[in-house]
């Protein structure tokens, strides 16, 4: 470092006087946005959660709905295949879970 640089550094550092906080920090803290929501799940976990919840609902709800379906089908005179019912429930459950999660 040259003598010119040394002098410049010395004087610039000397000019770097500590500034009294004087309410500055409080001002920053007052302006901070409200606390972040803790439910900041990543999309991967959201998707996995929705799939798990959908499957669980399917498992729980299929037997009674199927019974009800077969019963109403027998009254109406037609039969709905079970895989179609399962797919229908899963597709219905995913947006439902998504909605509940975002509430």
């Amino acid at each position: 470092m040259t003598r010119f640089e040394e002098r410049m550094e010395r004087e610039l550092r000397a000019a770097e006087k500590p500034l009294v906080d004087d309410g500055f920090t409080e001002g920053v803290l007052r302006r901070l946005p409200s606390r972040r929501r803790r439910l900041e799940w990543s999309p991967r976990w959201t998707l996995a959660g929705a799939a798990a919840a959908g499957s669980f609902l399917t498992l729980v709800l299929t037997p009674p709905i199927e019974t009800l379906w077969h019963w109403s089908g027998s009254i109406a005179g037609f039969e709905v295949p079970t895989p179609t019912l399962l797919v229908f429930i899963v597709f219905a459950a995913v947006p439902l879970v998504w909605l509940l999660r975002s509430e």
Partner: peptide
């Protein structure tokens, strides 16, 4: 904030 306010403001 307290730690860095002075050099940043300078």
């Amino acid at each position: 904030v307290r730690r860095h306010q002075s050099p940043l403001r300078n």
